[in-house]
Nucleic acid binder design. Sequence first.
DNA 1: CATGAATGAGACTTCATTCAT
DNA 2: AATGAATGAAGTCTCATTCAT
Lengths: 205, 205, 205, 205
Amino acid sequence: MRQTNRPLGRPHMSDRKKPTKEIILENAVKLFLKRGYQLVSMDDVAKECDVTKATVYYYYSTKAELFTDAMVQMMIRISDRIKKILSIDRPLKDNLLEIVKIHLRATFDIDLKTFIKDAKISLTDEQMIQMNYAEEKMYEVIENAIENAMNKGEIPQGNSKFATHAFLAILKVGNFRDMNNQSIINSIDEMANEIVNFFWRGMKV
Amino acid sequence: MRQTNRPLGRPHMSDRKKPTKEIILENAVKLFLKRGYQLVSMDDVAKECDVTKATVYYYYSTKAELFTDAMVQMMIRISDRIKKILSIDRPLKDNLLEIVKIHLRATFDIDLKTFIKDAKISLTDEQMIQMNYAEEKMYEVIENAIENAMNKGEIPQGNSKFATHAFLAILKVGNFRDMNNQSIINSIDEMANEIVNFFWRGMKV
Amino acid sequence: MRQTNRPLGRPHMSDRKKPTKEIILENAVKLFLKRGYQLVSMDDVAKECDVTKATVYYYYSTKAELFTDAMVQMMIRISDRIKKILSIDRPLKDNLLEIVKIHLRATFDIDLKTFIKDAKISLTDEQMIQMNYAEEKMYEVIENAIENAMNKGEIPQGNSKFATHAFLAILKVGNFRDMNNQSIINSIDEMANEIVNFFWRGMKV
Amino acid sequence: MRQTNRPLGRPHMSDRKKPTKEIILENAVKLFLKRGYQLVSMDDVAKECDVTKATVYYYYSTKAELFTDAMVQMMIRISDRIKKILSIDRPLKDNLLEIVKIHLRATFDIDLKTFIKDAKISLTDEQMIQMNYAEEKMYEVIENAIENAMNKGEIPQGNSKFATHAFLAILKVGNFRDMNNQSIINSIDEMANEIVNFFWRGMKV
DNA sequence: CATGAATGAGACTTCATTCAT
DNA sequence: AATGAATGAAGTCTCATTCAT
């Protein structure tokens, strides 16, 4: 007779322990996004993962490397999400609206440039290149969609790079909170509309 | 710590011109803007001012206090500059263009929110309030100008707060640099025009 | 006609400002007794006196000197008080009882030796000698009274130095407070009696 | 900071015998007893143990924690020693005499209250509680022995707490040294006798 | 694969003291 | 007589990193 209580067959995904390296990376992403490079110590990461600092160093030989990996991985994930939305075949404006809404619902909002500057002195050139590359890729996804729309005549021809960054910039208006932690417009849907409409009007001749 | 053999005590009044406190504040602003809160040590500030750390502490009893004072002072200076430009009696669009041009010529560009988050855990509530207040004042200057223009019919009535932050957001597109440190549009004047036009179109019905 | 509101005659004692040096000394005594040598800074003393640190240094060229003066002055005051009580012509036991009661009512209780050790490394030999001298004088007052009583036959002949220190030691039992800040005996009078009786019995053959 | 060029990381296990934590605690006890809380720096402790400051912090995350642990451990050791002596089955007076002799031979003598006050502002409530608890336990050992003797009729019934603290107080007379570092009674045995006899007489009706 | 132990460098802060006015 | 400004030395604590096991 079987003695153990383990169910028959392959264990559920959740039962199998995730590789430690992944655990570390995920927690690192979370912590870095919340507090920034300087305010996260390797000890913090270790504690969050329930391993020792030495274990973190076993997988990532410097904090800068962990940061780079964490950021790149995050940017890739963001790129993928955006790409997925933009691949839906409907007017660009609808897709952008969707992106804005998702962004507004997300809990974090950082300014990549200021954010990375915090880590810059610790990063090697190679690491900077990796991050920059991932960053550009992220922008390209949107840029391509805009160029597409321009070619299709959805929006007038123009500087797609400028458009991309203008879009990303206005996106952040949605994250603004005043002294009393109040947003400019309370409803997320209304805010999203306002943002996309503003952008859309800006793009027109 | 300083290595020179400058004697203890107060130096002859004659050889210093500006009050030490001012010198410290100015250098602090400069350093904080360049590197952010965490990456500037009180020693850095002291060295930059050619005084000892203890002297810095004589005037500012904590780093957080120095930071707060530095930021508030900077925001007040920015407010004043913007106010001065906006007080010129000509179409708002022209004034905004001027602001954009000046901003693009300035060397620094920081994201206030991300920037302050870096210092947040060290700041007292009182200090946060001071900074928030100075920040709001800064926004109000632009907001008032926009409301004015709305009332005059220069631009359609609308959410002036949203407009203000949209303007400040797009402003930053001008500071974007890609992997190769290239701006999206090379000429400052062209970029300024693009930015203001984009904003202006976005504001229209 | 007189214009001022100052009353005729010599001004009240309170109106005349006490010499700064005295103010400093008094506050120093107070602070040192409360916190000990190390935990009182010259700044603390200055603040307490509403003068600047430099003023304190004007009168006392080092912290050690201020401490020494403060302690000596305090010990002299204590000697005087004890002397006054002991000079009353009644049984020694009654006088001791009075001393105990007064001591128990006082707010401070320090162990001189431990207390001075805290300052020792900063004190010059000369300063140590001054303090030791004042300390011995303090003990002598009691010692003399005990010797007197021995000569008068009030108590048996014996080692008067031992007796003095035994008395001072048991005195401190009255200051003991347990974890919950409770004294061993609640009523001061009862405690004083217990102490003196214990001492008195101890002195008997 | 240590100047030697000892390589980073953990040294070979072989060349160290006692666990580092123990070494640190022992040296801390020694130093704190000699100089008190304020006058012992973490660097002092580190140097005494021939490790770096960082190592001390590896085991004790604050100076207050190290102090607390050191004091508690010391009080426990004292309790144990006293308990051992008092457990010998002979007249209480003989046991007390033994305790006094051992105490007089020991090199240190501190006033716990004054001693702890020096550290108090740095201690957490929890740490104060730990120390108070250890202190009370120490007193209880003697108190119990006294109560026992009272029950056996060796000494008259009375306030055992008062008796305990009276004993500990007179004990300190033996540690008194005058200006010239002279004890009141030169021979330790004589002094011990004098002390115990004084206490014993004091206890009698 | 993972960890416990150790370290060097550097951060913030305090403080007794000095000196020109 | 009093003070504001400045300093050097030291103290507590943090942290990225290393290494033997």
